[in-house]
């Protein structure tokens, strides 16, 4: 029982990380019909700038957090303006390759700025791990959990209650129709990019204390986040979060009950099974466009 709980906690920590990254994928998809394969790199930039701001420049964590999120969100908007809007034929596959190119570019830039070594920073609040029925949970994990759920809730309200949110959703359903009813669709897409990359930065900033960020961390995180988003149902906010937790817990159970070498294989095999039997994800949001 104690072991089981410990696997579960381990899965919960990883799952919250995957979930919050998946949220970034899902929310961009919901607003623009696009998957940003450089999302992991924005997480990396968020994590590394968090370390620089708090460790080198000694800015208090809370301020550093907002500076990072705002800054990376701005960077995401610049990226949209320069590389996405300028595309002559915005077909999904073209945009995917552009974001793949962007991920390589940003990784290279990250390497130049922060060097090749991993960095580290202390947790937000110094506190010994919690002991729950013999299993240990880090306080930072709770921070990650709380912030992930908080963000999903905020986004939920944003889409349901605000005019901008509704307008953004409308753009994804039909850009032409949205434009006809007077929604500035270009503006909405720009905003969606800012929000999505800003969320990537949130993920980066809160995981920095537990992950020892380095310039090449983005690829794996992006992959797992994408995976979680698909598992939960692309475009569904709560689905993404759930997909993240599911992936994290599955991985941890894979280590516990199968073998740690086959950890990823276990997770991906279950993912394939989910896809085969429920191709739209656990919570489906909208039908997914073909290439």
């Amino acid at each position: 029982m104690q072991e089981f709980l410990q696997y579960f906690f381990s899965g919960l920590t990883n799952g919250a990380i995957y979930g919050i990254i998946a949220l970034g994928f899902s929310m961009l998809y919901r607003s623009t019909d696009l998957i940003n394969f450089s999302h992991g790199e924005f997480v990396m930039i968020g994590a590394l700038s968090m370390v620089t701001l708090t460790m080198t420049l000694k800015i208090p964590v809370i301020w550093a957090f907002f500076i990072v999120v705002f800054g990376v969100g701005l960077l995401g908007m610049v990226f949209e303006r320069l590389a996405i809007r300028t595309v002559k034929r915005p077909e999904p596959i073209v945009l995917i390759i552009i974001t793949v190119g962007a991920s390589i570019f940003l990784r290279g830039a990250g390497m130049l700025v922060w060097g090749k070594n991993a960095q580290s920073m202390p947790p937000f609040t110094p506190h010994p791990p919690l002991d729950i029925a013999g299993a240990r949970l880090l306080v930072q994990s709770i921070w990650i959990l709380v912030i992930a759920i908080l963000i999903a809730a905020c986004l939920h309200l944003f889409y349901r209650r605000t005019l901008t949110g509704k307008a953004m959703y409308a753009c994804a359903i039909n850009k032409q129709a949205a434009w006809l009813v007077g929604i500035p669709s270009k503006m909405m897409i720009l905003l969606a990019f800012g929000l999505s990359t800003g969320m990537g930065a949130v993920a980066g900033a809160i995981i920095a204390p537990v992950t020892m960020p380095a310039y090449d961390m983005g690829a794996m995180l992006g992959l797992k986040g994408f995976c979680a988003a698909m598992l939960g149902g692309l475009g569904s906010l709560w689905g993404s979060l759930l997909g993240g937790f599911l992936l994290g817990v599955l991985e941890a159970m894979g280590v516990g009950f199968v073998s740690s070498g086959l950890k990823d294989a276990t997770a991906f095999l279950l993912l394939l099974l989910v896809l085969y039997f429920r191709p739209q994800g656990i919570i489906s949001a909208a039908s997914v466009k073909r290439f």
């Binding site: 595309v87 034929r89 915005p90 570019f105 130049l112």
Partner: peptide, 19 residues
């Protein structure tokens, strides 16, 4: 060390101008 950045940039430019 600039190799990765230029490689990414070339990919992006080709796709932007010759989609």
């Amino acid at each position: 060390d600039y190799e990765m950045m230029i490689y990414g940039l070339v990919l992006m430019l080709v796709m932007i101008f010759l989609p």
